[in-house]
Nucleic acid binder design. Structure first.
Lengths: 337, 337
DNA sequence: ATAGGTTGTCGAAGCGCTTCGACAGCGAAT
DNA sequence: ATTCGCTGTCGAAGCGCTTCGACAACCTAT
């Protein structure tokens, strides 16, 4: 393994000079810099991460805590994780992958050991156990998701309230009066992750203003669950013509079942989905949808963190404005209803 | 930040004693050990990762390179990643998340800087650029996937050859004579990742033995691509009654299209999928499938690596035997054909 | 010509840990 | 009673880097 000292010797300078060439923290004459860079290249030198971390008390690592559950929103999580890793590299950071399994202990371990300089938490619950720890440390962090209280925290999330409102507005404009909301799996509500509730709140209050009727039903993914939910919905509200779907693994089942029941999309019923672009585009009917901006969230989170680590940046809640893309799954409400 | 020295002072012993309590590399009297452990708890001590890495030249980190592409097999990748992270923690390791984006440079960087003690590479291509580097270093690594030459490498993968054979056998036993294989997206074949080809080879050679006819068509995910592919298949081989699907994002479109064309599953045509359990179970027809054992692969990879790092273990290719689960999408071939 | 300021480089200290050799203390064997 | 071999503990060196203060060498302003 090549060391700084070897590079220094090879270039005929002192170790500290090489260090300054690397960090740029002091000015170095062009000739010296070039000589050093040449030696670095020739010897194939890579600074030792441990030594660097020890001396500078900076690991250049960002920890990313992803939920252990592989049951929900998997592509979104992956997309965020990839965006985080990619953006982090651009800023010279690596990413440590932690699962939610360890819970608050993981936070303690990371902050205590100097393993990482900062953390990103995904899938934050309203009253998350990890929050007090984050508030009590000076290690920067960003949450992807919105807890009940955000004081002293930095959060990035889609504005789910506005998202709900946007969906219902779109349906209202098309003349739909009876809206059914296919929500997340019951487990998501029980876990109090918040985003599902926020969507619903935003949707409901806008619906009230617009004078629409809303029926909300949580729903597990898969066909059987969807079939049961759909039957109940049409039982209670036979005139339902508009659907808002938040659970992406319920989207395809819903479309298949509607087709099976002879209800045409978008002629008889309209469907708006809250899901990643790819799902919306690849579905059997190209879906009018509000995209979940996974990449943007990941990128934002890292950039906030880097700003904080550089002494810039501050605590702040960033709610990304939702954008609704009209595709083939929504149309005017049928005249008869 | 609490240091070893502070713990030592608090416990009234020397720093080295604390270190030995932590590592267990020398025997320590029970009373001393307990006193030290008590101090560690009281002070909330966590060893500094950088210092530890520097002194021991072991980072206790495993690097995981995941492909940048988010277009394929996303849930499988995520499942592997989670399994890797979880298993690694059990053995005292953390996981560094690298994207394939950096390519071979990432390997150089990690081995050169001592950032990680070992690497796991996912989505390995037949002639992967990173392989020469891995062979040229003494850093242990495990590939998830199978390159063209495995000499000097450790690999873990599903036995895709046997998987293909198993699928076709199942269909043969049910009396199907004309089999269509819906393969991966063309991009997957162009990338030469190998698993798709291996599946096909295994399937074809078994089909030959059994006297079946096989038609293979690569297929992108989504409805439009699937519709085109399906049309071509029935055009060329109208008597096709058995399908093997490898592209999981083609599964649902296929089922929907068959339904639409009035071909009942499993009465008229049978479908076998190669996909994660969850996809098979949640599909509109519960699918007879060979599961992709993502968790097992991740766990295996880590355990191999840990064994190597402990001086046990050796280079080896582990092919996981496929298991076919019969569900509702396959049945006897229709009598007429 | 002198004081003052820059610029570029160096030496040394030290980050917090592991690990090696040393050795005190003690029971067992001679 | 002396030697031997344990066991448990300590001190010190050193891992490879960053960073601080020092200081030549030069330039500019007086």
């Amino acid at each position: 393994m090549v060391t700084l000292a070897e590079v220094a010797q090879h270039a005929g300078v002192s170790a500290s000079t090489v260090s300054y060439v690397l960090s740029g923290k002091r000015s170095i004459s062009t000739t010296t810099r070039q000589r050093v860079e040449q030696s670095i290249r020739e010897l194939g030198y890579h600074p030792n991460a441990g030594a660097r971390a020890l001396a500078s008390s900076r690991s250049n690592i960002i920890a990313l805590m992803v939920p252990l559950r592989t049951d929900m929103y998997v592509p979104v999580m992956m997309e965020i994780a990839i965006a985080v890793a990619t953006t982090a590299r651009i800023h010279g950071y690596d990413v440590l992958l932690l699962t939610g399994e360890e819970g608050p202990d993981a936070v303690r371990r990371v902050t205590g050991s100097g393993l990482a300089d900062a953390m990103i938490l995904m899938d934050v619950e309203l009253e998350d156990e990890r929050l007090p720890l984050l508030r009590g440390t000076d290690q920067p962090s960003v949450l992807i998701g919105l807890p009940a209280s955000t004081s002293g925290l930095t959060c990035v999330d889609l504005d789910f309230g506005a998202t709900g409102a946007l969906c219902v507005e779109h349906l209202a404009k098309l003349g739909h009066r009876d809206i059914a909301v296919i929500g997340e799996a019951p487990a998501v509500y029980e876990r109090h992750t918040g985003f599902a509730e926020r969507t619903l709140d935003g949707l409901r209050s806008r619906a009230r203003e617009l004078g629409l009727r809303v029926l909300h039903r949580p729903c597990d993914g898969g066909y059987d669950a969807m079939a049961a939910t759909l039957a109940r919905i049409f039982d209670e509200r036979p005139d339902t013509t508009g659907f808002v779907v938040q659970n992406e693994s319920a989207v395809e089942p819903l479309l298949a079942l509607l087709r099976q029941q002879g209800r045409a999309v978008p002629e008889d019923v309209s469907v708006v989905a809250i899901c990643p672009e790819q799902v919306a585009v690849q579905a059997s009917v190209r879906l009018t949808s509000v995209a979940i901006p996974a990449q943007e969230m990941g990128r934002h989170a890292v950039e906030h963190l880097v700003a904080k680590l550089d002494g810039r940046g501050s605590d702040e809640v960033v709610l990304i404005a939702p954008e609704l893309t009209v595709r083939a799954s929504t149309g005017p409400a049928p005249a008869g209803s």
